[in-house]
Design a protein around this nucleic acid. Structure first.
Lengths: 210, 210
DNA sequence: CCTACCGATCGGTAGG
DNA sequence: CCTACCGATCGGTAGG
């Protein structure tokens, strides 16, 4: 596959601009200008705009796993420690502007929430995968007795991702890091209320220690 | 102002489609087709696309106030009861699909969070206005001793709007009402943890009683 | 992967 | 508020 390297170059830029202009805001012409390829070169590389969008979602998923899931999985044992690492890495992934427009899935899931189709399905699948992983991680913590007052992991997952995504959007909107501190306070107080070890929870907001 | 009635007709449709296709996804041509006016008629009515977008934000703000803020202000006394009414009316405004794509500000604040300019400023101003009102309402509840364990209203506002917006997006994404129940559980448990009256808080999720 | 080109649509203006 | 029109750009294809 000759075109694979070319696709990678174009996709890196496309994922980034999609977080700013949206996945529908992507145009083959602008990607061509930015990458140095011709417009029809881009069109041939991806086949259609919809296939381009699907390739962008897949590339974004790779980055998310690399930045958030993989380091937590490799760097921490199962249980509350890994839950805290996942939250910490998510916040860093948003705060460090891995993409100019913040979290790719926060941006595109809102863009496509009312637009049925294969692109929305791909975004939903990747988001669900992440939330399922967080839920399973919480269940490991429950099984280890680290969250004695929690009875349903899915509910806590909902609450945690609510804080993360709200912080992402509000930080971008106001050009401020304060929303991240609000999210950290919310995450810590929620975990403490569920009986988590205060020392473990206190690491949220001190940055990933790797 | 002859054009005022015409603007109103066009705007009602524009606000709705903006929640689906985005504020940048609006086009003068499609608004023309949908309203029966000519393309240049729409252009003359609003001056420019940016001015159209600003008019749409303003129209959305009017609907939000009419649906969420006004009924709570008129129907409840200051304090925790009004806070619960605001949350309840927000959930109804989202759940009842007042706009096809759910909450207008949830959609457009994410769309514009990385796009500086007057449109983003207008969205931010309206959102801040709502959050300020919720914060002041929480402060009334605090002053009345109804949230004895709360020390900073702004932090709780952040947490509450996080739940509301996450429920909105996820309900649209999955075509399910379950996310609203998650948000209700989260809101109730947060208020209870802050010492709120359980009977008052139990109204969240039973629908606005007016 | 390119040049050259397609019909459709974009935001906006002239002139009435 | 309209018709008529502008240059620019859209996604995509033909043909190589």
């Amino acid at each position: 596959m000759r075109g694979d390297e070319s696709r990678r170059i174009v996709l890196a830029h496309a994922v980034d601009t999609a977080t700013v202009d949206g996945l529908d805001g992507l145009t083959i012409g602008r990607l061509a200008d930015a990458s140095g390829y011709s417009k029809s070169g881009i069109a041939t590389l991806f086949g259609s705009k919809e296939q381009l969008q699907l390739a962008v979602v897949s590339a974004a998923r790779d980055v998310f796993i690399e930045r958030v899931v993989a380091p937590a999985r490799a760097g921490t044992p199962r249980g509350l420690e890994r839950v805290c690492a996942l939250l910490e890495h998510w916040l860093a992934y948003s705060r460090d502007r891995v993409f100019r427009g913040g979290c790719f899935f926060a941006a595109t899931s809102v863009e496509f929430d009312a637009k049925p189709g294969v692109v929305r399905d791909a975004i939903t699948a990747a988001s669900s995968e992440w939330e399922d992983y967080l839920t399973v991680s919480l269940e490991h913590a429950m099984a280890a007795g680290e969250l004695p007052l929690l009875d349903e992991a899915r509910q806590l997952t909902f609450e945690m991702v609510s804080f993360l995504e709200a912080a992402n959007t509000r930080s971008l909107l106001h050009g401020s890091a304060e929303p991240y501190r609000r999210a950290e306070v919310a995450l810590r107080s929620r975990l403490l209320a569920l009986g988590a070890d205060p020392e473990r929870v206190a690491t949220i907001g001190r940055g990933p220690e790797d």
